[in-house]
Amino acid sequence: MRLVTAIETATAWLAASLLTLSGGMLTYEVVARYFFNAPTIWAAELSQLCLIWACPVAMGWALTHRRHIRVTAVTAQLSPRLRQWAEVLSILVILVFSLVVLAYGFEIFFDSFERQRTTGTMLDMPSWIPEASVPAGFALLILSCLTNLWRALSGTLPDEEGVME
């Protein structure tokens, strides 16, 4: 449990840093193109890579901290006991989804890895570098699902933190 919490915190830290980094790289790109007429070949692609890795790895953290957008109109009216079961059910749905996506996402990554496929873009990096984010992210999400399932079953549900859209 504590290990998973530590992993979640680390991924949140990583994701927030990656997204901020992409802002810095793209600013550099605009300055380079606009003022020095020298567009880079790496800024667009590397900042995209930041997004591709930031989102999946932080899914587990977002689940535990209840940052996902959900409809609470009905569950809020339920008795604590029913709410607990709704929570268990909801985590099971995410768990099944994650297992399937992990399996097939790994297949995509592994195929590109084995074939040494490249992206064919300006940087022409190996395709598995972006593709590995999906299996990695969903493996982390499964860990978080399991700890949250334990919390839900033992009746220690955290409060909604909600999310701003």
Partner: peptide, 11 residues
């Protein structure tokens, strides 16, 4: 599927 030929450049 239909793709531009150059989409296969990675392979």
């Amino acid at each position: 599927g239909v793709a531009s030929l150059t989409r296969f450049v990675g392979d």
